[in-house]
């Protein structure tokens, strides 16, 4: 699903759950963003390199290439390393506290932590407000 309003900022949504992709794309489009989507890390990497999105919403548990691998790769690639990444996941590691998980994503590969972390199901208001802030 792609909204072609020119001049709008572009967000790449990566999730293997079709319902989640439709939801996030609709929500982001309703809030003035263009969207593109991918269903796993490999597909996501291709789209990121091709479309240079302004922000990426990333799921963690996905087929073929998980969100963790994707995140580390995108942060190490010169072309994509500065794109803000918002994690949207149902993982329940560490009792739901996102901080250790953000550290886990960054520490071993010496890459910066993700810009934001939202457990599923997301709080719509907080989610959009964070996206607006990151893209201001």
């Amino acid at each position: 699903m792609t909204d072609s309003n020119e001049g709008r900022k572009k967000i790449l949504v990566i999730d293997d759950e079709p319902s989640v992709v439709i939801y996030l794309e609709t929500l982001l489009q309703d809030n003035g963003y263009n969207t593109i989507s991918a269903s796993n890390g490999n597909d996501g990497m291709e789209k990121a390199l091709e479309h240079h999105p302004d922000l990426i919403c990333l799921d963690i548990t996905m087929p073929e290439k998980s969100g963790v691998s994707f995140y580390r790769d995108i942060r190490k690639n010169e072309e994509t390393k500065d794109i803000p990444v918002v994690i949207v996941t149902a993982v329940t590691y560490y009792g739901g506290d996102p901080e250790p998980f953000k550290n886990f994503l960054s520490s071993r590969h010496i890459v910066p932590a993700p810009d934001a972390f939202f457990p599923k199901p997301i709080d719509k208001k907080e989610f959009i407000s964070k996206i607006n802030e990151l893209l201001a």
């Binding site: 759950e17 319902s19 989640v20 439709i22 939801y23 996030l24 609709t26 929500l27 149902a90 993982v91 329940t92 457990p119 599923k120 199901p121 997301i122 719509k124």
Partner: peptide, 16 residues
């Protein structure tokens, strides 16, 4: 974990 994903799908359905 499973319920959260389904819940997000349901919320998404209602939103859409």
């Amino acid at each position: 974990h499973g319920i959260k994903n389904v819940l997000m799908g349901l919320e998404g359905g209602m939103y859409v």
